[in-house]
Write a protein that binds this DNA or RNA. Structure first.
Length: 543
DNA sequence: ATAGGGTTAG
């Protein structure tokens, strides 16, 4: 299938391949390079060349080709090649499942594994690490436990790859106790296993325990590596604990290890997440001064800090860098760019990036829909939502519905909003969260349906928060309903007696369509507790 | 065949 259309290019390229003498090593290296650069066309051409020369069926090349297509996210091609290799060959299962797991197709990896078992193939120690990884990333703890049983039954518990992957699976599923038990049961504890447990501690929010573990293991002769320290740095940085980040870096230097791109990216990411934009920019600059090149992960971490008009210049510079280096195509980078332009109000730039995107995930879609919704392009937002549902490229998630409902409420599309709220639950089995209720209350409230909004609040299966009451209060003020406004105000005061002022601030922000982006700022203010309270002021200035 | 950093919402 892949071959036919490329006849002309094949002949020219064949000459090139033959000039290398066509050793298998060259083919392998080329395929790996193509995979790394996502050079799908070149890889397809080489594939055709291998077919013509009768090499494509050789298991060695077939495996490489499967990995290549998986890397280029061409799952159907990978699967087609897999189907051409004789069934009894265990290697083909290992390669396909491994390729899926390595490139983020966790659901597929697990379903192929079930298929493998249905075909009567027994799992071995080479396939288990990939399956465990897929389980962990997918959060499928039940299957993971079954695999643990398989490991014990087949005495794979002395294979360090398998055991490390098992610890990682429990860690990723948030089962630290289980991860700990497996780790402490190991006769020869190895570095990868320890690192997997360290990451489990972080997942669970006990970074300090992780540090203690590392120190203990050091006493017993374990030598931590950059991965160990980077894991700890990421944990402390996310917790906004600058002091501990510095301490870990010092420890790292005592062990003769240098910070790499991942260390820097972890620090930058933590700073941005904790709203220290200036410090993040400074750190980014220092990283460049040290001579390290930012990766797509670094870029997608720093871009959210550029999502205000004041810092857009830097964002544009970074955008330029991504174009030059070719990482603009990366989904994370692309989504972050779309979000950045959209947040700054440059909807047409965001739209252009979105339409030129070949690979989109739910974040890409959601960023664009939010961009439209938050800037009053409500029909565009709804149209894009419909397109997403129609094309079934990605399933809408809870954020997609938040974005679409936001658009409905700004456009006063009450009926459509109600149908979305129903569709979300009935068709997609998404439980409405606080923000969905807040949108619905806002939608009904703006349309003057205050009683319906109030009924919805009272029917909520979860405790309404200040956004829900804030939206309701805004609607009551707008429609001059003193009685209901008073109820809302009392509820707000009850929810946040310490920072009653912030509730009012937030509710008015909520009511103001164009100021969504400021919510983050307000949250930061609240977090720093610098907000003076002014209880009982002009909430009910309805008149 | 296993371990580290990333994008949306609140």
């Amino acid at each position: 299938m892949v071959i036919g259309a490329k006849a002309t290019r094949i002949s020219t390229n064949s000459i090139v391949y033959h000039s290398f003498n066509g050793t298998s090593d060259v083919y392998t290296k080329l395929l790996e390079a193509y995979a790394q650069n996502g050079a799908l066309q070149s890889g397809k051409t080489l594939h055709a060349h291998l077919v013509i020369n009768g090499l494509a069926q050789k298991t060695h090349f077939a495996s490489k080709l499967i990995a290549f297509y998986a890397e280029c996210k061409q799952l159907s091609h990978a699967r087609k090649l897999f189907d051409k290799i004789p069934q009894s060959n265990i290697r083909r299962w290992i390669v396909l499942i491994g390729a899926y797991a390595r490139h983020g197709f966790y659901e597929e990896a697990m379903s192929v594994f079930s298929e493998m078992q249905r075909e009567g193939m027994k799992p071995n120690k080479f396939v288990l690490p990939s399956v465990l990884k897929a389980c962990g990333r997918f959060g499928d703890f039940r299957t993971g436990e079954i695999l643990h049983g398989v490991i014990l039954k087949n005495e794979f518990e002395f294979d360090s790859y398998v055991v490390s992957a098992l610890i990682d699976m429990y860690s990723k599923c948030g089962k630290v106790e289980k991860a700990k038990r497996v780790f402490y049961g190991m006769v020869d504890k190895d570095l990868v296993a320890m690192n997997a447990l360290v990451s489990g501690y972080l997942q669970y929010g006990i970074v300090n325990d992780a540090l203690v573990l590392v120190e203990q293991m050091k006493v017993q002769g374990m030598k931590p590596n950059v991965v160990t320290y980077n894991t700890l740095i990421a944990g402390f940085s996310q917790e906004d604990d600058q002091v501990m980040v510095c301490k870990v870096i010092e420890l790292m230097h005592d062990d003769g290890l240098e910070q790499d791109v991942v260390s820097w990216t972890s620090i930058i990411s933590g700073l941005v997440q904790n709203f220290h934009n200036k410090e993040a920019f400074g750190m980014f600059k220092r990283m460049l001064d040290v001579g390290l090149c930012p990766t797509s992960a670094t870029i997608s971490s720093i871009l959210p800090a550029c999502a205000t008009v004041a810092d857009l210049m830097l964002g544009k510079e970074i955008h330029g860098y991504t174009v030059v280096t070719g990482i603009e195509k990366d989904v994370y980078v692309k989504s972050a760019l779309i979000d950045m332009y959209a947040k700054c109000g440059f909807i047409s730039e965001a739209k252009e990036l979105f339409s030129k995107t070949s690979e989109r995930n739910s974040v890409t879609w959601n960023s664009m829909i939010f961009g439209y919704a938050n800037h009053g392009y409500c029909s565009e937002a709804i149209e894009l939502f419909n397109q997403m549902v129609r094309e079934e490229e990605r399933k809408p998630d809870h954020l997609t519905f938040t974005a679409a409902l936001t658009a409905c409420s700004h456009a006063r599309m009450v009926q459509f909003g109600e149908s979305l709220f129903k569709m979300m639950q009935d068709k997609y089995a998404i439980k409405p969260r606080l923000e969905h209720f807040a949108c619905m209350v806002d939608l009904l409230g703006r349309a003057g349906k205050l009683d319906e909004a109030y009924n919805l609040i009272q029917s909520m299966p979860i405790e309404p928060d200040l956004f829900v009451w804030g939206a309701f209060l805004g609607a009551c003020r707008q429609h001059g309903n003193m009685d209901l406004a008073e109820i809302a105000a009392k509820q707000l005061a009850k929810l946040e007696p310490e920072s009653a002022g912030s509730s009012v601030l937030l509710s008015s922000l909520y009511a103001d369509a164009s100021k969504w982006a400021n919510v983050a700022k307000v949250k930061r203010v609240i977090k720093k507790k610098k907000l003076t309270k002014f209880p009982g002021c002009s909430w009910v200035d309805v008149a």
